[in-house]
Design a binder for these strands. Structure first.
Length: 651
DNA sequence: GTAGGGTTAG
């Protein structure tokens, strides 16, 4: 009698612990439940210990290390516990550990089941360890588990993640009764390896399709930049869920089709669908790239009202939008008002935002705040902080962080970090130092590295080094139009018109076309795009008319003389003037001045770097017209006020 | 008591 009461009371406690555990969202609360299990002796109960382990290893973030300790503490882990720890490691940033645990499991002669193989295969894929994956495949065969539906499906995706589409398809073709999930896996496998035709064939062959199959097609076409085909599938699919909509919004935004991304978002609301994290970050990303500030503000209002601001990722995307739309102050407000659990992305976004606006000191302060708050910076954080240093001319600080990254945090620099260092020295005019740095890099410099240095040669007018660097670039990417333009600019600034002509000729001979410059401006929440010397529509006419009026006022009141150094052609002076006067950023600016009401800040986004003459014109306009102009170019922000620019003529 | 396929911000 006494014994049975005890059994009942243990099972009640067990139930209680399990239900408590289910509610735990943080490591702290899980630890409290763990303490209860220890006190009640339930810590040796397989079911409770297993669930505790599962919760730490899979459900809660940053609790994997605790899971590892729990696992090692248990004297005789069973197959469930092994599977759980393998799964936890497989999905972590140390997937190699899942293979270690698997080997240990085999050594201890624990029974392997389909779960063990499915999880450890995922670990091998995430570790990028194809050979290990193949070994595990053989091992699964020995256990007769390779044809198990779940294991085989995992094998299909593992092989495709490793780029082996033929192996993936082979595993699939050998499956006796593939279900819709297996079919979807093989569709994804074909797309992942760039085999669009293969996916289409598979899709036609499928005996049944559910919603996910259609979504796979959408995502696949978008990845292959077959946007029209994606649209066709989207129209054709019988049912659309939030993933379908988010795929379209994020996909079109990623491919620079902002208008369409906005359009899909509006339509999503129109059909009564509730946006999710992905569609929201997608539409915000479109705003960020397009520089659509007013639309961004409207979205923030919507996010507040509809209760989306508890999502960290949405806040991060909103911050990025404000930074890229030129309002770093509003980004900072979002950052300060964010929920407690800011992520590494939140900190890095804010640091990068301050950096692109030239607020180097503030970015450095924030980096220290981040360290103090216990968040460990990663490689991308260091790219942002190095970028902050180079754009604010903080050379010593930049060098300090470059060393700190390696010495304190053990992060090995990658090509982007080296690029920042070249920019740091190059922008500051330490061109020889930058060149020596490139020559001493432990990894071979890419075209981007040399291009950074060529840009610096152009800023500082160093013809000799510029020529040397261009030679390196010609070996790596001989037909890049930007490089030719940069070299031509270097010659033009030095007045070497003959050399300019040679560059121009070589461009014509090699059929290299200059990337057309475009600029965008937002007026009444509509984005208007202008192209240099573009078609003569009504909008462009209006911009030209206003521009002529502005230039003549600048000549009289501002003493404006056009700077034609950056004109590629050795043409007559008058023609050169005409050529710079057609630059897209000037047209966008003139249009903004014609349309926007007085006192508004003019925000322009340009795809290339601002030219010297446009930069000078904007400085003058900001003084003569008492206007604030904000330009985002390919490299940074320029904030023009009272005749000067925040970049201190340094870009 | 655990899985496999589709969308995400720096």
């Amino acid at each position: 009698m006494k014994k049975s009461t005890a059994t009942v009371s243990v099972s009640v406690t067990e139930q209680l612990c399990l239900s408590l555990l289910h509610k735990c969202k943080t490591l702290k609360t899980v630890k409290q439940v763990h303490a209860i299990t220890c006190k009640t002796g339930l810590d040796t109960d397989r079911i409770v210990a297993g669930k505790l382990l599962l919760h730490c290893a899979v459900s809660i973030s940053d609790a994997l290390d605790y899971a590892r300790r729990l696992f090692h503490h248990f004297p005789d882990p069973d197959v469930f516990m092994y599977n759980t720890i393998i799964r936890g490691f497989a999905e972590s940033d140390t997937p190699r550990n899942s293979l270690v645990a698997f080997v240990e499991m085999r050594r201890r002669a624990c029974v392997l089941d389909s779960f063990s193989f499915a999880f450890v295969l995922k670990g091998a894929a995430n570790y990028g360890y194809l050979r290990g994956g193949v070994q595990l495949h053989c091992d699964a065969m020995r256990h007769g588990l390779n044809t198990h539906l779940f294991v085989a499906t995992t094998l299909v995706s593992v092989y495709s993640e490793c780029g082996c589409v033929s192996s993936a398809r082979k595993v699939f073709e050998e499956m006796s009764e593939p279900n819709v999930v297996a079919w979807n896996a093989v569709l994804t496998a074909c797309f992942r390896c760039g085999d669009v035709k293969g996916s289409e064939e598979m899709f036609d062959r499928m005996p049944i399709r559910n919603l996910t199959s259609w979504n796979v097609m959408l995502a696949g076409y978008i990845k292959a930049v077959e946007l029209e085909l994606a649209k066709e599938v989207f129209l054709e699919m019988p049912v659309k869920d939030d993933v379908s909509w988010s795929t379209m919004i994020a996909g079109f935004a990623q491919n620079g089709c902002f208008d369409e991304a906005f359009g899909f978002f509006r339509k999503l609301l129109w059909v009564g669908m509730r946006p999710n994290e992905v569609s929201l970050t997608g539409v915000l990303s479109a705003c960020a790239q397009a520089g659509a500030f007013e639309f961004g503000k409207i979205l923030q209002g919507f996010l507040e009202k509809a209760g989306f601001l508890w999502m960290i990722s949405v806040n991060n995307a909103l911050m990025d939008t404000y930074c890229k739309c030129g309002n770093v102050g509003m980004a900072r407000l979002v950052f300060e008002r964010m929920p407690e659990n800011k992520s590494i992305v939140s900190w890095t976004t804010m640091i990068a935002g301050l950096a692109m606006h030239g607020n180097g000191e503030e970015a450095i302060q924030l980096f220290h705040d981040m360290e103090a708050s216990g968040i460990r910076p990663d490689g991308i954080t260091f790219i942002s902080i190095l970028y902050a240093c180079s754009h604010a001319g903080l050379i010593e600080q930049g060098c300090k962080y470059f060393s700190k990254m390696k010495d304190v945090y053990g992060i090995e620099p990658v090509i982007e970090h080296y690029g920042c260092m070249v920019d740091l020295y190059g922008r500051a005019g330490k061109l020889q130092k930058a060149y020596d740095f490139v020559c001493q890099m432990p990894i071979s410099p890419t075209a981007i590295i040399w291009r950074t240095l060529l840009g610096a040669c152009s800023i500082h007018g160093n013809v000799k080094l510029g020529e040397k660097v261009k030679e390196r670039l010609s070996e790596l990417e001989p037909s890049d139009s930007g490089d030719h333009v940069l070299l031509s600019n270097i010659y033009a600034i030095a007045g070497k018109w003959k050399d300019v002509a040679t560059v121009r000729r070589s461009m014509t001979d090699q059929k290299i076309k200059k990337t057309p410059g475009w600029s965008m401006i937002e007026v009444d929440k509509i984005m208007y795009a202008f192209v240099a010397g573009g078609k003569q529509d009504k909008i462009t006419q209006e911009a030209y008319e206003k521009l002529r009026e502005i230039i003549s006022k600048l000549r009289i009141e501002g003493g404006y003389v056009p700077e034609v150094g950056s004109v590629l052609h050795d043409i007559e002076e008058e023609e050169k003037e005409d050529s710079v006067s057609r630059h897209s950023e000037k047209l966008a600016l003139a249009f903004g001045m014609a349309r926007l009401c007085e006192g508004s800040v003019i925000r322009i986004v340009k795809n290339l770097r601002v030219c010297r003459d446009c930069h000078a014109v904007m400085k003058l306009i900001s003084r003569v017209y008492r206007l604030e102009i904000l330009v985002r170019d390919r490299s940074r922000f320029h904030s023009f006020r009272d005749g000067s620019c925040s970049c201190r003529d340094y870009w």
